[in-house]
Design a protein around this nucleic acid. Structure first.
Lengths: 180, 180
DNA sequence: TATTGTTATACTCTATAACTATA
DNA sequence: TATAGTTATAGAGTATAACAATA
């Protein structure tokens, strides 16, 4: 990607090292996630998103509300309702009225949901280790963890990230959406 | 995620640092990509995938075949045909018969496609810098680039990644897909 | 009024298989 | 026979807005 030079317009001084790092980062994670999703579907019959939701519930000390469950996942609330419907139908989670707030829904793992996570997690971790950590030293692991933690905290601090009704920037002139 | 302990079954010795790093990596990139996609849609009316395709073409010395264009992007060929159709309809690329191989299609950016990339890229890079690199030192940048380059090369070397007809592992017993 | 969650709906995207044409 | 690409089709996933119920 080194030949794209927006600074040919004098607009942006572009650091090739940054651009390269950015592209490699996105490419690697895309590859990783694709492989992981294949395995999750094959071994557990679930998507990566569903795995994330189940893992989040498994990690929590108790039931979570839909809002808590959505937090950290980028989805719209309706998207979460959709996924929760699938997981509930599959017997992996339950939804029940939350005790303290009658508007809220308490989402909890069933025994089967727990069993599923426990069954697929070892293979999942093994694959992560195989694909992500095998070519890295312990030092790399520390560095990567430290770096991405700072990035995440920075991004989480930045925007009003749960602002669902946040105003979108108006499309730039001449930016017709690419659609049918 | 530190409380998930598959090794409670004695199956996998689990390194919490690895698990944490893995989750933070995926979470950060997910957040980053979401923000970038918002901007691309707002400023250029294109999705992240479409941006990748256009950027790949802009970076190439000349036209690419569909297969070359698909390489590095995880998509099926039909998915690429679909996206190419959208981009062509939008006047951003052209498809014409390849000169040397009559089976192949030569994909090239139009002037408008080039103009779009040149118009969008500065803001894109600015956002990447703002979200990804602002909290990082020059040293972090080097480390991250080095680490992810090794990861990518490792993953690209591993599987017969272009093996479209690769056999899927059979679903594990009791792994009913979570669907309607 | 604001918040929680669901529903209806439309749309985007992806994957599979069948198909054509060329190597 | 194998490869390049398209098409048809079906399904998964997502987003928007309208809605009901509670705080």
């Amino acid at each position: 990607m080194s030949e794209i030079r927006p600074d040919a317009d004098g607009v942006q001084p572009l650091d090739p090292a940054q651009l390269n790092t950015y592209f490699v980062l996105l490419e690697s994670v895309s590859l990783l996630q694709y492989q992981l999703e294949q395995q999750l579907r094959a071994d557990g019959g679930i998507s990566y998103v569903q795995f994330e939701l189940l893992a989040r519930l498994a990690d929590a000390p108790g039931p979570l509300t839909m809002t808590q469950l959505a937090d950290g996942v980028v989805y719209s609330r309706s998207g979460l309702t959709y996924q929760a419907g699938l997981l509930e139908k599959a017997g992996l989670i339950t939804r029940s009225p939350a005790p303290d707030d009658d508007r809220a829904t308490a989402v909890a793992l069933t025994d089967e949901g727990f069993a599923l996570i426990r069954r697929i997690l070892p293979g999942h971790i093994q694959l992560v280790r195989h694909l992500l950590f095998d070519p890295l030293s312990d030092n790399d692991l520390q560095d990567l963890g430290s770096i991405m933690t700072r990035v995440r905290d920075h991004m989480r601090a930045q925007p009003p990230r749960s602002a669902a009704a946040r105003k979108r920037r108006a499309p730039a002139p001449g930016a017709a959406p690419v659609k049918d």
